Amino acid sequence: MSRTVNCRRLKQELEGLDKPPFPGPLGQDIYDNVSKQAWHEWMEHQTRIINEQHLNMMDMTSRKYLQDQMKKFFAGEAVDQAEGYVPPSE
């Protein structure tokens, strides 16, 4: 049986991640408080930001910026958007 978490972003009890996404306190916090669905949404958003802004993930400034955006995303705060991105219509 899968574990559930009270998802901080989606404000629902949803299926949690299988393991922390990375080591350390932030990874554990995400594991404890973010659902698989919200994590998947973040991964898609993160990819758009990296591509749009041509971020170099070897650069610590880019990594710090992305981490700050991730914290805002999961807190439900406004985050930077990829310019010109239009979500697909369903």
Results as ranks from 00 to 15, higher is better:
residue 85 Y to E: 12
residue 80 D to N: 04
residue 62 S to V: 03
residue 81 Q to D: 07
residue 15 E to S: 09
residue 81 Q to R: 00
residue 28 Q to Y: 08
residue 42 W to A: 01
residue 76 G to R: 01
residue 36 K to V: 10
residue 48 R to F: 06
residue 80 D to L: 15
residue 42 W to P: 07
residue 63 R to T: 04
residue 80 D to G: 01
residue 67 Q to P: 00
residue 21 P to S: 10
residue 66 L to K: 04
residue 18 D to T: 05
residue 46 Q to W: 09
residue 61 T to F: 13
residue 87 P to M: 00
residue 65 Y to D: 08
residue 62 S to A: 09
residue 73 F to K: 06
residue 59 D to S: 04
residue 15 E to R: 07
residue 28 Q to G: 13
residue 88 P to T: 04
residue 35 S to A: 14
residue 54 H to Y: 12
residue 49 I to K: 06
residue 49 I to Q: 12
residue 61 T to H: 14
residue 79 V to I: 15
residue 54 H to F: 05
residue 16 G to H: 02
residue 27 G to Y: 06
residue 76 G to W: 03
residue 60 M to S: 11
residue 1 M to H: 12
residue 73 F to R: 06
residue 23 P to S: 10
residue 35 S to C: 13
residue 61 T to S: 08
residue 11 K to M: 04
residue 56 N to F: 01
residue 88 P to A: 14
residue 53 Q to D: 04
residue 18 D to R: 01
residue 53 Q to R: 06
residue 26 L to D: 12
residue 39 W to V: 05
residue 21 P to G: 11
residue 71 K to D: 02
residue 25 P to N: 09
residue 27 G to R: 01
residue 89 S to G: 12
residue 52 E to R: 08
residue 14 L to Q: 10
residue 11 K to I: 03
residue 11 K to R: 12
residue 49 I to A: 07
residue 22 F to W: 02
residue 80 D to Q: 14
residue 72 K to W: 02
residue 7 C to K: 03
residue 57 M to Y: 00
residue 29 D to I: 03
